[in-house]
Design a binder for these strands. Structure first.
Length: 273
DNA sequence: ATGTCAGACAACGTCTGA
């Protein structure tokens, strides 16, 4: 089974590249982030023509996650346990955003997550990021609490955290920035402590498989990137991984996202439910 | 080969978020 995650930076703007990639990479399950469209506006017919069902958690111009599957989608869960909200411009009260959803596809439990960016250290969005990660940890703990299910489990998505300095093209440049601070890395460590492992993709071209390169200043051709899109797997999932890589070809050419897909091949083992 | 891009507004440029 092939499972992937991709921050597409608008599923509408990315539709030609998305369809091309689905047809060539043939994932069984694809977790999407930043779909940037309401649930009703998702291009269902286009992905269905390639054999995929879609479950979508989106409200409009920002954020939004989805799960595409050609092996079924069951037990869809939208949002986190006690998910914190953010006070959007023009809003009177903080409200949860569309950043996380879980689904069971072909006997594998996946969560597609888009962790808040944080904007800058000390910004209200940074505190929101840490709070949101704590709620993600609570949700993972809830999902992994033994209930008789033996499904492989993974959280896939854009974490907006580089796990180590090696996951940033120039750590010194990011010293005062979000994505690398001890607070963010501690929140990631706390999440992993719930029973997950960072599935490291195999390098294809460079020493470290980055997943994101800014659109500006020729960042991609210079490989000025970061590894911030992660697959965090429980032991049942991790032990079934036969390959993992970043499809950097999807970052080439015109009309690309600023992120590349992370692809994992999995032998899910005997179907035990 | 690539020196931002996408969405929404009231627009046909300018703002915001990333």
């Amino acid at each position: 089974m092939r499972i992937a995650t991709w921050n597409v930076n608008s599923v509408v703007a990315r539709l030609p590249r998305l369809l091309e990639w689905l047809a060539s990479a043939e994932p069984d399950v694809l977790c999407l982030q930043e779909v940037k469209c309401a649930r009703d506006a998702f291009p269902y017919e286009e992905v269905e023509a390639l054999g995929y069902e879609a479950a979508v958690h989106g409200a409009g111009r920002w954020n939004g996650v989805a799960v595409l599957s050609r092996v079924g989608i069951d037990d869809v869960r939208l949002g986190l346990v006690d998910e914190p909200g953010f006070l959007a411009d023009g809003a009177l009260l903080p409200a949860p955003e569309q950043r996380a959803m879980g689904a069971t596809c072909g006997g594998v439990r996946v969560w597609s997550v888009y962790v808040p960016n944080g904007r800058s250290v000390g910004h209200a969005h940074y505190a929101y990021k840490l709070d949101w990660l704590a709620a993600l940890r609570a949700t993972v703990t809830d999902e992994l609490t033994p209930t008789g299910s033996t499904s492989p489990f993974a959280v896939l998505g854009d974490f907006n955290i580089a796990p180590t300095d090696a996951d940033v093209w120039d750590a010194d440049l990011f010293r005062e920035s979000t994505h690398v601070t001890p607070g963010e890395r501690q929140a990631l460590a706390d999440l992993l402590a719930a029973g997950l492992t960072d599935v490291m993709p195999r390098p294809l071209k460079h020493a470290v498989p980055f997943t994101y390169w800014d659109y500006r200043q020729l960042a991609f051709p210079h490989n000025h990137g970061m590894r911030i899109d992660l697959v965090l797997a429980d032991e049942r999932f991790r032990s079934g991984v036969t390959d993992a890589y970043v499809d950097r070809n999807a970052r080439k050419g015109k009309g690309t996202s600023d992120h590349a897909p992370v692809v994992v091949d999995l032998d899910p083992g005997p179907a035990t439910g």
